[in-house]
């Protein structure tokens, strides 16, 4: 039972880290960035390059974030900026961009599967069970991401402008907030977070050009259900992640893979605002 609980919490942490970048972009811009999976992949490859250069893990993570953020700036300025009034076209455009990025990664690194060694290996003894040390570390990573970004959103000038744009963009513009710049910065942060999460999952996963894709649907569903705040994202990750683990453990892992999508659809049917306070 303890193992199931640990599985549930660490899975939720993983889901939270991967979805948070998507959430930030969705919260501010009301568009879904389907290139998110590609940015996750870019981050993993940045971690791969960093690890090959012999950088310590604490420098690999900022490198991944910076690479993702740079990709985000480019994407916002060239593609996404033109599509704010057309959210459906934005989905299509970012999905296409994801394919392009995947192919570019393939051209540079090849289709093969690559590897990054974990910064911590093996298991630790937790309440009498041996458990994967890196998965435990992911809980900490999720908490750090949550703390930094709620501090950013609630404690800084940028955060204030961002919240203003979220609430009423016209009014914010009228008050002198440069909403174009807020969007650019937000998109860059979201993409950077995606890349950071890609780097964080490399020790648990392989690095290949399509590695981000399986996570995209879960991340998308979680963001839809959470309705736009980091806190509700954490709640939905915990609830749906636990359900996934429970179904996988006690029923079968193939159904477990469908759990998040199905539960999200059911939640949204019953309560369209999801886990958000109405």
């Amino acid at each position: 039972m303890l193992i199931v609980a640990l599985d549930a919490v660490t899975t939720a942490a993983l889901l939270f880290v991967i979805s948070s970048g998507l959430l930030i972009v969705f919260g501010v811009m009301k568009i879904i960035n389907f290139a998110h999976a590609a940015f996750v992949t870019v981050g993993a490859y940045a971690a791969l390059v960093g690890a090959r250069l012999g950088l310590p893990w604490v420098l690999v993570l900022p490198l991944a974030f910076a690479t993702g953020a740079a990709c985000g700036v480019l994407t916002e300025a060239t593609i996404v900026r033109r599509l704010y009034q057309r959210p459906l076209d934005a989905i299509l455009a970012t999905w296409g961009l994801g394919i392009v990025i995947g192919q570019i990664v393939t051209l540079i690194f090849g289709r093969g599967v690559q590897f990054v060694q974990a910064p911590v290996a093996g298991t630790i003894d937790l309440f009498g069970v041996d458990y994967s040390a890196y998965r435990i570390l992911m809980i900490g990573a999720a908490l750090v991401v949550a703390l930094i970004f709620s501090a950013l959103l609630n404690g800084t000038r940028l955060g204030l402008s961002t919240r203003a744009v979220i609430m009423n963009e016209m009014l914010a513009q009228g008050l002198g907030v440069d909403s174009a710049r807020v969007r650019l910065v937000t998109f860059a942060i979201g993409s950077g977070l995606a890349a950071l999460s890609g780097a964080l999952i490399t020790p648990l996963s392989s690095v290949d050009p399509n590695m981000g894709v399986p996570w995209l649907i879960s991340a998308f569903m979680l963001v839809m259900v959470s309705g736009g705040s980091l806190l509700t994202l954490a709640v939905s990750s915990l609830v749906l992640g636990s359900l996934q683990v429970i179904v996988s453990t006690f029923v079968n892992p193939i159904l477990g893979g469908l759990t998040i999508a199905i539960c999200a659809a059911v939640v949204l049917r019953i309560r369209p605002e999801g886990f958000a306070r109405a």
Partner: peptide, 20 residues
């Protein structure tokens, strides 16, 4: 005897079952 979909990448629940 446990299976994950072809694109699945999180084997955690299966590994927990294996260990027990």
């Amino acid at each position: 005897e446990e299976y994950l979909p072809m694109d699945g990448s999180d084997w955690t629940p299966i590994i927990s079952k294996l260990k027990s």
